[in-house]
Amino acid sequence: MKDKTTVFRSNVWETQSVVSSVLSQVYQALQEKGYNPVGQIVGYLMSGDPTYITSHRDARNLITQLDRDQILEEMVTKFLHK
């Protein structure tokens, strides 16, 4: 069975860039499939159910490699400019 595990995170700056990159890719994949990307990403972050994220462009696999709290931490940090 092909292992598609991707290992992320080495330092804070790299983590931020990984989260940002994954979210951008997921956003684009959801948009291409006709979903409301923000609503779907929020649904995933709130519930943990990967069904919210399309498997188009491997988006589901990408986002589930990150911890949800890690994504939320980065989003809050970025929003508050901390």
């Binding site: 006709g34 979903y35 609503g39 649904g43 519930s47 159910d49 919210y52």
Partner: peptide, 25 residues
């Protein structure tokens, strides 16, 4: 209920133009 079938229904409904938030919670 938080079952995956609830989430699936919510995603489908939103695709049809509904405004459902919180499915899976």
């Amino acid at each position: 209920a938080k079952e995956p079938e609830i989430v699936d229904l919510a995603i489908f409904l939103n695709g049809m133009g509904a405004k459902v938030r919180g499915a899976g919670t």
